[in-house]
Design a protein around this nucleic acid. Structure first.
Ligand code: FAD
Length: 545
DNA sequence: ATACCCGTTGCGCGT
DNA sequence: GACGCGCAACGGGTA
């Protein structure tokens, strides 16, 4: 297949756009509603006062039909519905979004498209700067309404602000619905009564206890109106692209297949499997700190994070399904270690990301301790490129790129190693790497956890340092995890699998792995760096108090 | 004001 | 697959 260049691709899309959307359609339009205003209430709001009109539902996250308040709102308003996804050039860039992350998102889009087609509709996919794309679409389709889900990260909030401005000018009324979090974040902010948000889990739990449980999921939307014929039959404008068709990704070949496929149907299936595991006992015994970082088939946690991140799975649905299972048992684990507890961690970090300025960086972030990290490019590269000489670290960084998902404790070990444990490099750098490669890469959660691990916020006991040797050895004495991701070490004897530099040359030759040639020597001495860095931490904490 | 409690997930050693 | 201690002493919340 011929791969179009970025320019060609844009041209094709614009061409298709003009051909498919002749302004001859004669649909009702609420011309009286000139002022665009945001309605931030949840779904039960009365739409009876609004005349039906052509409506765009702009999908960004929430790539699902179930429990989707934004879609429900759009369907209520629509005389004609345009399900739209915009491929924003800001994101569509292999330096920002890695192969697996982008692949996963495209699979979610394809699944959504597939579901929409059952209603004679489909996902309209357009490449371009969102504000301009939306303006074009609204003009061409003579839209009265635009519906999208509330987003909380900085880029999205700025983008959405610009969109609202532009739509106001066009007289298109916008509806912004909460849906990505358990609770509407603005409702939580209001409940703070001007107090700063909780920074500890125990305080957060008290805070939401007084609010009560999150809303129950709403009915899956089933009355999606058909898409107008010209658009439905057009191939060029609408097709969810293959990853090879995207400029910049065409030459990247998938290293190994990632075991996780995107999409709402896979998400629901995966959730069901988790709920049914050991007839629910797996759920009620779940205790996060006791799950194993090295189990791969199946992993010891749900791996619902990439689905939740894309909104292929609703957190409220997951919450209430967990609640249902828990209610049928008398003995169960509790937050923060339980699975519901994990959803509370997410909510907690979302609220912080929403309210704390510059949450994703050190500068200007009132929660983040300023630690004098020192950037060493060769060390950073060794970490990122799985060349540290510590097999567990390198195996983990290989898994990050191949699968786009790591167990929580594996994230701990590599994050600790990069920052306070060994390399003394800023968590901001590590966060960027994670953001790029993780299929569940999430602005708030990623930043919060990096601050946690680096003792920059929330957690301060800096003498608790993960050993890249002792920690994984507890779970995996034979190093099977390492052997799986680092084939070069596959035949290393158990005795040396975590510390191959200790293998005598004779052994190295026998197993065809010469240190410094086939596999790197360790870039630092962990014991030495740990001692030195704890001393640095003592300095930092003394100077501050 | 001050002391004390306790926090999802450390290590290495001793018992 | 248990637990207690030193490590050297964080910090928000509560009494
Ligand atoms: C340095 C670092 C970076 C991280 N970056 C991300 C990220 O970009 N995106 C992300 O989703 N998670 C991130 N996490 C949190 C956590 O590691 C993952 O959410 C979890 O491993 C996902 O696997 P799971 O779905 O099997 O989790 P489960 O244990 O099955 O938990 C269920 C859900 O709860 C939520 N959750 C679980 N753990 C956390 C947590 N610690 N904080 C907030 N929410 C949580 C997730 O949505 C997850 O899908 C990071 C952790 C660390 C230490």
């Amino acid at each position: 297949m011929a791969i179009p260049s970025l320019k060609q691709w844009q041209r094709n899309i614009l061409f298709a756009f003009h051909n498919d959307c002749s302004p001859s359609c004669n649909t009702p339009r609420a011309r009286t509603l000139l002022a665009s205003h945001i309605i931030q209430k949840h779904i039960h709001m009365d739409t009876g006062t609004h005349i039906k009109g052509p409506t765009i539902v702009w999908f960004r996250k929430s790539l699902r039909l179930h429990d989707n308040p934004t879609l429900q709102r759009a369907v209520q308003l629509a005389s004609e519905l345009f399900p739209l996804f915009i491929l924003d050039p800001y994101y569509i860039n292999p330096d920002k979004i890695g192969f697996q992350r982008f692949r996963f998102m495209l699979e979610c889009m394809k699944d959504l498209d597939h579901s929409l087609r059952k209603y004679q509709s489909k996902l309209l996919v357009i490449y371009g700067e969102p504000v301009n794309v939306l303006e074009n679409c609204c003009k061409t389709w003579k839209c009265s309404y635009l519906c999208f889900e509330k987003d909380s990260d900085i880029y999205s909030r700025n983008r959405d602000e610009k969109v609202l401005q532009r739509m106001k000018g066009l007289g298109v009324q916008c509806f912004v619905e909460s849906g990505h979090t358990l609770y509407d974040l603005d409702m939580l902010v209001a409940k703070l009564n001007g107090n700063s948000p909780p920074t500890q889990m125990t305080s957060f739990l008290k805070f939401i206890e007084q609010i009560g449980p999150p809303p129950k999921p709403i009915e899956t939307v089933r009355n999606i109106p058909p898409l107008r014929k010209e658009l439905l039959s057009s191939i060029s404008i609408s097709k969810v692209p293959e990853i090879e068709e995207i400029p910049g990704y065409e030459l990247i070949t998938e290293p190994t297949p990632c075991p996780f496929q995107g999409g709402e149907s896979k998400a629901l299936e995966r959730m069901q499997q988790a709920l049914n595991r050991e007839q629910g006992k797996w759920i009620v015994r779940f205790s996060k700190p006791h799950t194993s970082p090295v189990s791969l088939d199946p992993p010891s946690t749900t791996v619902l994070s990439p689905y939740i991140k894309c909104g292929a799975l609703s957190v409220r649905l997951f919450f209430w399904e967990l609640k249902r299972v828990e209610d049928s048992f008398s003995v169960k684990t509790k937050p923060p270690v339980s699975l519901i507890g994990q959803l509370y961690w997410r909510e907690h970090f979302y609220l912080l990301g929403y309210t704390i300025p510059h949450f994703d960086q050190i500068q200007g972030n009132p929660l983040c301790k300023t630690i004098p990290w020192e950037h060493r490019q060769e060390w950073f590269q060794a970490w990122e490129q799985a060349q540290t000489g510590y097999p567990f670290i390198d195996a983990a960084m290989t898994q990050l790129k191949q699968w786009g998902w790591l167990h929580h404790l594996t994230r701990h070990v590599v994050a600790c190693f990069l920052t306070r444990g060994d390399l003394w490099i800023s968590w901001e750098k590590g966060k960027e790497t994670f953001e790029k490669y993780l299929i569940d890469g999430d602005w708030s959660i990623n930043a919060a956890n990096w601050m946690w691990l680096s003792c920059s916020a929330f957690f301060t006991r800096y003498f608790r340092v993960y050993s890249p040797i002792a920690f994984p050895k507890k779970y995996d004495p034979h190093g099977n995890y390492i052997r799986y991701f680092l084939p070069v070490l596959r035949n290393m004897p158990n005795k040396y699998i975590y510390e191959p530099w200790k293998a005598p040359l004779k052994v190295q030759k026998e197993v065809n792995c010469i240190l410094g040639k086939d596999y790197p020597l360790p870039i630092v001495d962990h014991e030495e760096m740990k001692k030195r860095n704890i001393q640095k931490m003592i300095q930092v904490f003394q100077n501050k108090s």
